[in-house]
Design a binder for these strands. Structure first.
Lengths: 255, 255
DNA sequence: GTAATAGTGTCTCTAAGACAATATGAA
DNA sequence: TTCATATTGTCTTAGAGACACTATTAC
């Protein structure tokens, strides 16, 4: 232990402490076909060539961590990412997580409404939405026992994905963030389906309606109603400006 | 935009994307003299020479991010850090946050029972517990209007501190983490004082007692009672193995 | 005795959970 | 018509907040 270590974060000597690579990786979640899905890319080069991984890339010298994540998100999803919620998730930097060199990745969580299928034919890497239930077998909530093997993601991306999904699930409890999965105008029923799919449990439509419409600032009436698919047409809402659910809507305890 | 950017986090070329320095900084909180206090060091060198800063230092090539934080914590607080809670807070990496070079810091939050005063005379840097109320003026909860100027911390450490304090405050709501501020054996009254000090609001002793003792796994009776200072002696408890408060104990909404 | 803190019990009120009942469209 | 979904309302119950009251020590 060198004595200069104690003086705080500024006391460094780059030649003694070799610098590291810093990347921004993304857990992009959406609701598609009544399932929670994550955007994955198939790696083209070793290590983990041919293996699915979270999208991500280098943080450039002149951009913030968030800007790097937003840039990667735009590159992966195309232009239609305006209404995407983006927040920092956590950082992962175990030595050996990348066999070639020390890489610290700052993971971001993005929640998006249903987007067009990942850009086709524009570039080399294959990208696709994959239901998270197929990737999280062994998780506590018993999503679907794996038929056959569970595909493993590259690096420590299984852990990052699990952390991202858990963050999303818990944030639905105490924020109006579920609206990030919905288009600009949506119905209470659509919002409820988001909750049910993300949490993996059914909710009572009546009680959900009462709770959501009774929380000031959660929803703003948008005027119209849906042209009915089936059943009575529903009123349309936009997301309100509330940032917290007080009191929260708790998932049933899973005992 | 280079096309190779899309292939995921592994597709990098260190010569094209210059590596960065990675540090681990600490927000170490404790309760001292009926105040929430944070461990700070006074910087000895520019930039920000003479300015207070969070303790921290380099992540070494062979250690995990968490190990780096734990090592810094041990160096700052001496050996008595066994029962300290340590969790990752967030990462901060804006270009220019350190004027000399690009530095990404992974901040960790540590919650400690009252520790011996920071190591005296062992090393160069001065370290001290500073009440956070003196550092957070302008925050939403109206901690004490600043008499005179509010000392500013080095770099973006004001932001990191604010994030750490908010994390601690919110975690008291839905976890038994307040016990991390208490010694191994403690009374319900001591625990309540932790809540009151961290949240900055008074709590009803009767209702608090009912809530805490009624939550299975929060407290384990330790057998004895306090030798009375004043009033009736109180039973001693140890922290239980519960990891979640269900239902949570919510702070009064501060409208 | 008084003062101070610990602990128990009781009442009220909010809000969640479990439903009944009605509304409004499509097939 | 039947079916499906939306929306409103009602009842029950868990739990938070307010607060009276008792218990046990120091002085």
């Amino acid at each position: 232990v060198v004595s200069s270590d104690r003086a705080g974060s500024a006391d460094y000597d780059p030649s003694r402490y070799p610098p590291m690579a810093v990347t921004a990786d993304l857990v992009v979640l959406t609701v598609r076909d009544d399932e929670l899905a994550v955007l994955l890319v198939r790696r083209g080069e070793p290590p983990f060539a041919g293996v699915l991984a979270l999208p991500g890339g280098f943080v450039r010298p002149q951009e913030t961590l968030r800007q790097a994540a937003a840039r990667e998100l735009a590159e992966e999803t195309g232009a239609g990412f305006r209404s995407v919620h983006l927040e920092q998730l956590a950082s992962y930097g175990d030595p050996g997580r990348d066999p070639r060199m020390r890489v610290i990745t700052v993971a971001y969580l993005a929640l998006a409404p249903e987007l067009p299928a990942p850009r086709a034919g524009t570039d080399a890497a294959e990208a696709a939405w994959v239901p998270v239930a197929r990737l999280l077998a062994g998780s506590a909530d018993g999503d679907r026992p794996a038929r056959g093997a569970v595909p493993r993601l590259a690096f420590d991306h299984d852990q990052i994905l699990a952390d991202g999904v858990e963050r999303a699930r818990s944030k639905l409890e105490y924020t109006p963030l579920a609206t990030a999965f919905c288009p600009a105008e949506f119905t209470v029923g659509q919002l409820r389906r988001v909750y049910e799919i993300v949490w993996g449990i059914p909710l009572d439509p009546r009680n959900f309606h009462r709770k959501i419409t009774g929380t000031p600032g959660f929803l703003v009436p948008a005027g119209g109603t849906t042209a009915g698919d089936r059943g009575r047409p529903a009123r349309l809402y936009r997301r309100g400006d509330a940032t917290l659910l007080q009191p929260p809507m708790l998932r049933a305890s899973l005992d």
